[in-house]
Protein backbone atom coordinates (compact mmCIF):
# COMPACT_ATOMS: atom_id res chain seq x y z
CA UNK A 1 0.00 0.00 0.00
CA UNK A 2 1.57 3.35 -1.01
CA UNK A 3 1.89 6.05 1.67
CA UNK A 4 -0.80 8.74 1.91
CA UNK A 5 1.61 11.46 0.84
CA UNK A 6 4.97 10.72 -0.73
CA UNK A 7 7.23 13.70 -1.36
CA UNK A 8 10.43 13.03 -3.30
CA UNK A 9 13.05 15.65 -4.15
CA UNK A 10 10.80 18.67 -3.74
CA UNK A 11 12.48 22.00 -4.58
CA UNK A 12 10.76 25.34 -4.78
CA UNK A 13 11.58 29.01 -4.89
CA UNK A 14 9.78 32.29 -4.51
CA UNK A 15 10.91 35.48 -6.20
CA UNK A 16 14.15 33.78 -7.30
CA UNK A 17 14.99 32.78 -3.72
CA UNK A 18 15.39 29.06 -3.07
CA UNK A 19 13.21 28.03 -0.17
CA UNK A 20 13.72 24.31 -0.22
CA UNK A 21 16.09 21.96 -2.02
CA UNK A 22 15.55 18.27 -2.45
CA UNK A 23 13.03 17.89 0.32
CA UNK A 24 11.75 14.34 0.85
CA UNK A 25 9.31 12.99 3.38
CA UNK A 26 6.38 10.65 3.67
CA UNK A 27 3.13 10.89 5.51
CA UNK A 28 1.08 7.93 6.65
CA UNK A 29 -2.39 7.76 8.15
CA UNK A 30 -2.09 8.72 11.83
CA UNK A 31 0.89 11.02 11.28
CA UNK A 32 1.04 14.63 12.42
CA UNK A 33 3.72 16.60 10.62
CA UNK A 34 4.66 19.93 12.05
CA UNK A 35 6.47 22.24 9.61
CA UNK A 36 8.81 24.55 11.47
CA UNK A 37 11.08 27.38 10.49
CA UNK A 38 11.56 31.12 10.85
CA UNK A 39 9.32 33.64 9.08
CA UNK A 40 9.81 33.52 5.33
CA UNK A 41 11.30 30.05 5.31
CA UNK A 42 8.59 28.70 3.02
CA UNK A 43 6.21 26.97 5.41
CA UNK A 44 3.08 28.45 3.87
CA UNK A 45 4.42 27.85 0.37
CA UNK A 46 4.98 24.18 1.23
CA UNK A 47 1.39 23.86 2.41
CA UNK A 48 0.12 25.64 -0.68
CA UNK A 49 2.11 23.25 -2.85
CA UNK A 50 0.67 20.25 -1.03
CA UNK A 51 -2.83 21.69 -1.36
CA UNK A 52 -2.31 22.30 -5.06
CA UNK A 53 -2.54 26.07 -4.97
CA UNK A 54 1.04 26.64 -6.10
CA UNK A 55 2.45 24.52 -8.89
CA UNK A 56 5.79 26.16 -9.55
CA UNK A 57 7.93 23.43 -7.98
CA UNK A 58 10.20 20.58 -9.00
CA UNK A 59 10.02 17.07 -7.62
CA UNK A 60 7.62 14.19 -7.42
CA UNK A 61 4.58 14.48 -5.17
CA UNK A 62 2.27 11.53 -4.84
CA UNK A 63 -1.03 11.05 -3.04
CA UNK A 64 -1.87 7.40 -2.47
CA UNK A 65 0.62 6.55 -5.20
CA UNK A 66 -0.89 8.88 -7.82
CA UNK A 67 0.98 12.00 -8.96
CA UNK A 68 -0.32 15.28 -7.61
CA UNK A 69 0.16 16.76 -11.07
CA UNK A 70 -2.35 14.27 -12.39
CA UNK A 71 -5.00 11.99 -10.99
CA UNK A 72 -3.82 12.26 -7.40
CA UNK A 73 -4.88 15.92 -7.33
CA UNK A 74 -8.57 15.14 -7.87
CA UNK A 75 -8.58 12.35 -5.31
CA UNK A 76 -6.86 14.58 -2.77
CA UNK A 77 -9.22 17.48 -3.37
CA UNK A 78 -12.24 15.55 -2.24
CA UNK A 79 -10.43 13.86 0.67
CA UNK A 80 -8.63 16.75 2.32
CA UNK A 81 -9.20 20.08 4.04
CA UNK A 82 -6.98 23.10 3.56
CA UNK A 83 -7.20 25.91 6.10
CA UNK A 84 -5.18 28.87 4.93
CA UNK A 85 -4.20 32.18 6.49
CA UNK A 86 -7.43 33.75 5.33
CA UNK A 87 -10.67 32.74 6.94
CA UNK A 88 -12.47 31.80 3.71
CA UNK A 89 -15.61 33.27 5.26
CA UNK A 90 -17.92 35.86 3.77
CA UNK A 91 -18.35 38.36 6.58
CA UNK A 92 -21.80 39.38 5.39
CA UNK A 93 -23.08 35.82 5.71
CA UNK A 94 -23.88 33.90 8.89
CA UNK A 95 -21.80 30.90 10.02
CA UNK A 96 -24.68 28.68 8.91
CA UNK A 97 -24.70 30.11 5.37
CA UNK A 98 -20.91 30.09 5.13
CA UNK A 99 -20.62 26.47 6.21
CA UNK A 100 -23.49 25.36 4.03
CA UNK A 101 -21.69 26.82 1.03
CA UNK A 102 -18.31 25.38 1.99
CA UNK A 103 -19.89 21.94 2.33
CA UNK A 104 -21.49 22.31 -1.10
CA UNK A 105 -18.08 23.19 -2.48
CA UNK A 106 -16.89 19.86 -1.11
CA UNK A 107 -19.58 18.30 -3.24
CA UNK A 108 -21.90 17.57 -0.35
CA UNK A 109 -25.14 19.09 0.69
CA UNK A 110 -25.40 18.78 4.44
CA UNK A 111 -28.47 19.15 6.58
CA UNK A 112 -29.13 21.92 9.04
CA UNK A 113 -28.42 19.67 12.03
CA UNK A 114 -25.01 18.67 10.64
CA UNK A 115 -23.99 22.34 10.45
CA UNK A 116 -25.40 23.00 13.92
CA UNK A 117 -23.47 20.03 15.32
CA UNK A 118 -20.23 21.24 13.77
CA UNK A 119 -20.77 24.72 15.21
CA UNK A 120 -21.62 23.29 18.63
CA UNK A 121 -18.41 21.24 18.51
CA UNK A 122 -16.32 24.41 18.11
CA UNK A 123 -18.27 26.18 20.86
CA UNK A 124 -20.41 28.46 18.73
CA UNK A 125 -23.84 27.15 19.64
CA UNK A 126 -26.27 30.05 19.45
CA UNK A 127 -24.20 31.99 16.92
CA UNK A 128 -25.64 30.19 13.88
CA UNK A 129 -27.50 33.23 12.56
CA UNK A 130 -25.18 36.05 13.59
CA UNK A 131 -23.40 37.60 10.59
CA UNK A 132 -19.70 36.70 10.74
CA UNK A 133 -18.83 40.41 10.67
CA UNK A 134 -20.15 40.67 14.22
CA UNK A 135 -18.03 37.77 15.51
CA UNK A 136 -14.61 38.30 17.05
CA UNK A 137 -11.44 37.19 15.22
CA UNK A 138 -11.22 34.11 17.44
CA UNK A 139 -14.85 33.21 16.82
CA UNK A 140 -14.36 33.59 13.08
CA UNK A 141 -11.40 31.25 13.34
CA UNK A 142 -13.66 28.76 15.12
CA UNK A 143 -16.20 28.95 12.29
CA UNK A 144 -13.36 28.12 9.90
CA UNK A 145 -12.39 25.18 12.10
CA UNK A 146 -15.98 23.91 12.11
CA UNK A 147 -15.38 22.97 8.47
CA UNK A 148 -13.14 20.15 9.64
CA UNK A 149 -16.08 18.46 11.32
CA UNK A 150 -18.68 19.22 8.68
CA UNK A 151 -17.29 17.13 5.86
CA UNK A 152 -15.09 14.21 6.82
CA UNK A 153 -11.65 14.01 5.25
CA UNK A 154 -8.51 11.92 5.58
CA UNK A 155 -5.97 14.73 5.48
CA UNK A 156 -5.88 18.15 7.13
CA UNK A 157 -3.53 20.84 5.86
CA UNK A 158 -3.54 23.57 8.49
CA UNK A 159 -1.64 26.82 8.04
CA UNK A 160 -1.20 28.54 11.42
CA UNK A 161 -4.45 27.12 12.81
CA UNK A 162 -3.84 28.50 16.31
CA UNK A 163 -3.87 32.16 15.26
CA UNK A 164 -6.34 34.30 17.25
CA UNK A 165 -7.57 31.40 19.38
CA UNK A 166 -7.82 31.74 23.16
CA UNK A 167 -6.00 29.35 25.48
CA UNK A 168 -8.97 27.03 25.88
CA UNK A 169 -9.56 26.83 22.13
CA UNK A 170 -5.88 26.10 21.55
CA UNK A 171 -6.08 23.16 23.94
CA UNK A 172 -9.30 21.97 22.26
CA UNK A 173 -7.78 22.18 18.78
CA UNK A 174 -4.73 20.23 19.95
CA UNK A 175 -7.14 17.62 21.28
CA UNK A 176 -9.04 17.47 17.97
CA UNK A 177 -5.82 17.08 16.01
CA UNK A 178 -4.79 14.26 18.34
CA UNK A 179 -8.17 12.53 18.05
CA UNK A 180 -8.18 12.92 14.29
CA UNK A 181 -4.71 11.36 13.98
CA UNK A 182 -5.66 8.58 16.40
CA UNK A 183 -8.67 7.74 14.24
CA UNK A 184 -6.47 7.35 11.16
CA UNK A 185 -6.29 10.88 9.80
CA UNK A 186 -3.11 12.66 8.76
CA UNK A 187 -2.26 16.27 9.54
CA UNK A 188 0.31 18.70 8.17
CA UNK A 189 0.43 21.96 10.09
CA UNK A 190 2.58 25.04 10.48
CA UNK A 191 2.69 26.79 13.81
CA UNK A 192 4.97 28.76 16.09
CA UNK A 193 2.94 27.56 19.00
CA UNK A 194 4.51 24.92 21.27
CA UNK A 195 2.45 21.78 20.77
CA UNK A 196 1.79 19.45 23.69
CA UNK A 197 2.32 15.74 23.63
CA UNK A 198 0.64 14.33 20.56
CA UNK A 199 0.82 10.76 19.35
CA UNK A 200 2.58 10.46 15.99
CA UNK A 201 3.96 14.01 16.02
CA UNK A 202 6.97 14.64 13.79
CA UNK A 203 8.75 17.81 12.81
CA UNK A 204 10.13 19.11 9.56
CA UNK A 205 12.41 22.12 9.81
CA UNK A 206 12.76 24.48 6.87
CA UNK A 207 15.38 27.14 6.27
CA UNK A 208 17.72 25.59 8.81
CA UNK A 209 21.09 26.33 7.25
Amino acid sequence: MPPLLDIQGLSYARDHRDLARDLSFQLEAGDILRVEGPNGSGKTTLLRILAGLYTNYEGELRYRGESLRGRGRLAMRSESHFLGHQSALKLSLTPLENLNWLAALNGQSVGLDAVENALAKVGLKGYEDVPCRQLSAGQQRRVTLARLFLVSAGLWLLDEPFTALDRQAVAELEGWIGEFAASGGAVVLTTHHALGQLQGLRSLTLGGS
Partner: peptide, 13 residues
Protein backbone atom coordinates in the same frame (compact mmCIF):
# COMPACT_ATOMS: atom_id res chain seq x y z
CA UNK B 1 -9.10 38.79 -0.64
CA UNK B 2 -10.98 36.70 1.92
CA UNK B 3 -9.66 33.32 0.78
CA UNK B 4 -12.95 31.89 -0.47
CA UNK B 5 -11.48 31.76 -3.98
CA UNK B 6 -8.82 29.39 -2.62
CA UNK B 7 -11.54 27.04 -1.45
CA UNK B 8 -13.31 27.33 -4.80
CA UNK B 9 -10.08 26.36 -6.59
CA UNK B 10 -9.54 23.39 -4.26
CA UNK B 11 -13.10 22.19 -4.50
CA UNK B 12 -13.96 18.92 -6.24
CA UNK B 13 -16.85 20.83 -7.85
Amino acid sequence: DDGTLEQVLLSPV
